[in-house]
Design a protein around this nucleic acid. Structure first.
Lengths: 228, 228
DNA sequence: CCTCACTTTGACCGAATGGTCAAATTAGAC
DNA sequence: GTCTAATTTGACCATTCGGTCAAAGTGAGG
């Protein structure tokens, strides 16, 4: 239920940098203790922030969940906001990944359905991450607004071109590619973000299997080109 | 941008009652001042809560938005939570309405598309209400959990039966009715709840017209029964 | 075992926040 | 106008919260 941690040997990805700077050292690699405690804090932060949002969460809650004292938290991250921001940054890479993997050279319908499948799997396996993200967007995305209009927009525009090419080649029925992407996001994330509601309506039966079947059918019917 | 206020003459709907009880009087009708100030507080509360959530909003913010002093707020609502709860209750009626209106005796595809249309219109016209609701669900629906598993579940189950009948009569292609409803919720509310993201990707062009076209196409293709 | 940098924490602080209250002001019935 | 109940508010309180700091503790290399 954890996002796959980046290998510690990976060269300083942009999200670890600020944490290091904020320690008293600048260049030394992380000690075992640092790794353990940073990981514990991020994990605890994810748990708490995804439940209560940024303002709704307290350092004491996070500290307790991480098994550390509050001043000790602030030894590793310089503020509550820093923990939240670090989480969001780590999350963003992971979030774009499934769409990035959609291959322009693959079979169109298979590629799109593959994306839907990966995205639904993320809702199932990383619901806390999904809710953290949803919360941030709901509040107007104050911490990642620029990321959305840069990286995200560019990626979606790229894929929209691919979708339009598939359409022009008669491989998929005509659609608005941007709204296609929105609908995939909406329906897959719904099962993580609105989990309580879904389960309230369905009873306790696990929704994800039927959801996948449903989404598969939906996109097949919508995208299969009309017979000539 | 306001939910249609219930007529003041309507006999005490369940959502006005608690406010009255909390005043010093028990049975007298609301004075003009009460009506004005309650409305101002609820309107301000909607504005603030939908932006910052329950814990993220402060009484001072709401008081300022309502043009009242903080103690005066608490003269009309006995706590911050009471304002929030009153808003949620008022919202719930409105939220179920579009689904309720789906007519078992109408033309199936037209009825379903009509529901989609009404729901999308609500996202466009009442985005604050949508976000307030989304926020509540995201946090685990602590204030309305029981409403979800009672009223909402019952309503959806009823409509699921209707959808299955339509399917049996060959009027729509076979689908899982519950997930059909979920997908309508997800895709329509997405345009209110994830508005920032949608606009970041699309630029400032208004999303709703294209969204309606897209959703219309999507559901038509998915629901139109295969030719015999 | 000593040392020194790294780590941890108890005590504390100022600001923000939800809420109270008694006193002042105002609206409306007569 | 007068009286009463409804309304409004400034001052205040207790608690929570994010964050600081100096001091204490600890681990690892020599």
């Amino acid at each position: 239920m954890q996002l796959p941690q980046k290998d510690a040997n990976t060269l300083g990805s942009d999200h670890r940098r600020p944490k290091i700077e904020q320690l008293h050292t600048m260049s030394k690699p992380e000690t075992r203790i640092q790794q353990r405690n940073r990981a514990a804090i991020l994990s605890a932060g994810l748990e708490i922030f995804s439940q209560f949002g940024l303002r709704g969460s307290t350092l004491d809650q996070i500290a307790e969940a991480a098994g550390l004292s509050k001043p000790n938290l602030l030894y590793y991250f310089k503020s509550k906001d820093a923990i939240y921001t670090a989480l969001l940054e780590r999350l963003l890479e992971t979030w774009l990944d499934p769409l990035q993997k959609m291959d322009a050279n693959g079979d169109p319908i298979k590629e799109i359905l593959g994306y839907v499948h990966r995205k639904l799997a993320m809702s199932k396996d990383y619901p806390r991450e999904s809710r953290l993200f949803a919360n941030e967007i709901l509040q107007g995305a104050p911490h990642i607004a620029n990321h959305l209009s840069q990286d995200l927009r560019q990626l979606v525009d790229e894929k929209a071109v691919v979708l339009k090419e598939w359409e022009a080649a008669g491989k998929i029925a005509p659609i608005d590619p941007h709204h296609l992407v929105f609908s995939i996001w909406a329906m897959t994330q719904h099962y993580a973000d609105f989990d309580v509601q879904v389960r309230a309506v369905l009873g306790d039966k696990d929704p994800f299997e039927d959801a996948m079947t449903y989404l598969d059918t939906l996109f097949r019917r919508m995208l299969t080109p009309p017979k000539p």
